[in-house]
């Protein structure tokens, strides 16, 4: 459950990002304002090309912006140079990618331990941490296997362990279930949600998987580079999320309420119809 007093992990103000193909501009993000608080399990939803991955990359200090302000863990990441960004990512952000993106030549354990070694820990200590996190994601017995000897779901669990091994405050996951079957995807989401609740690590996930959206503590819908809808599982004033899009705040909550009313109404009607049939 989110704490009302929780501090902001991500603070984005009036963010614009445009890609250029030759002389043709392709706006990717347009006037994004967003605040994610500590411990949230936030999901960025939207169609392909809506700007989810770009937003995630910017928050992860992997990409630059055209204008705006991005603060992650109270640090202005846009003012950092390349090395400072790398250092910041190493100590504060964990990444989970759609295609797992494990280092092919390393075993599962070495993949997880690598991040710890980058942080300056000894090999032995890094291996111990790796073992711990592999057990946390329920594949402790597969640590010696290379990525090509693991299933997609197992590889993504290794990626989750790797993301957590550096003890980050924020985990960014880009379509983590897109390459998994629905059952494995659901397991992975349940695992990530559990870790989020147990460790309090903030998750920002881009996905259009309904299971991921269902698990979200907050759903942020992007369309054409703008936040068009946002929804929290906690009753909270929608003003905590704003967008330059004037219609961005209310429709989803209203629609959801209508949807559930309608669904309840339909269920009552069905019962009535069945009773009527039996009587007749």
């Amino acid at each position: 459950m989110l704490n009302q007093q929780a501090e902001s992990v991500i603070k984005i103000r009036d963010l614009h990002k445009c890609y250029w193909v030759g002389t043709m501009p392709f706006p990717a993000l347009y006037g994004i304002n967003l605040e994610i608080e500590s411990g949230e399990f936030a999901v960025l939803a939207g169609r392909s090309g809506s700007g989810k991955s770009t937003l995630l990359n910017i928050v992860g200090a992997l990409e630059s912006t055209d204008s705006g302000r991005v603060e992650v863990l109270s640090r202005d990441i846009l003012s950092m140079n390349q090395d400072q960004r790398t250092h910041f990512r190493l100590h504060n952000i964990g990444f989970i990618f759609q295609a797992y993106n494990l280092i092919r030549v390393f075993s599962a354990r070495e993949n997880v331990a690598y991040v710890c070694q980058l942080q300056g820990k000894s090999k032995k200590e890094s291996m111990e941490i790796a073992n711990h996190w592999l057990q946390e994601v329920e594949i402790g017995h597969l640590g010696y296997r290379r990525p090509d000897q693991l299933s997609g779901g197992q590889q993504q669990r290794v990626a989750v362990a790797r993301a957590l091994a550096s003890n980050p405050k924020l985990i960014l996951a880009d379509e983590p279930t897109a390459n998994l079957d629905s059952m494995t995807g659901r397991h992975l989401i349940r695992l990530m949600r559990e870790l989020n609740q147990r460790l309090g690590t903030t998750f920002l996930i881009s996905s259009h998987d309904p299971d991921v959206k269902q698990a979200a503590s907050r759903l942020i819908k992007l369309a054409d580079g703008q936040i068009v809808e946002a929804w929290n599982d906690i009753p909270k004033p929608p003003s905590s999320i704003t967008s330059s899009c004037p219609m961005s705040n209310l429709p989803l909550t209203e629609r959801l309420q209508n949807y559930f009313k309608a669904a309840r109404g339909n269920a009552r009607n069905k019962k009535r119809r069945r009773k009527t049939r039996r009587r007749s």
Binding site: D83, T86, R89, H91, F95, F97, I103, Y114, R162, S166
Partner: peptide
């Protein structure tokens, strides 16, 4: 790209 993303310096 991935190993730089997860914190390997240039």
């Amino acid at each position: 790209g991935v190993i730089v993303a997860i914190g390997t310096k240039r």
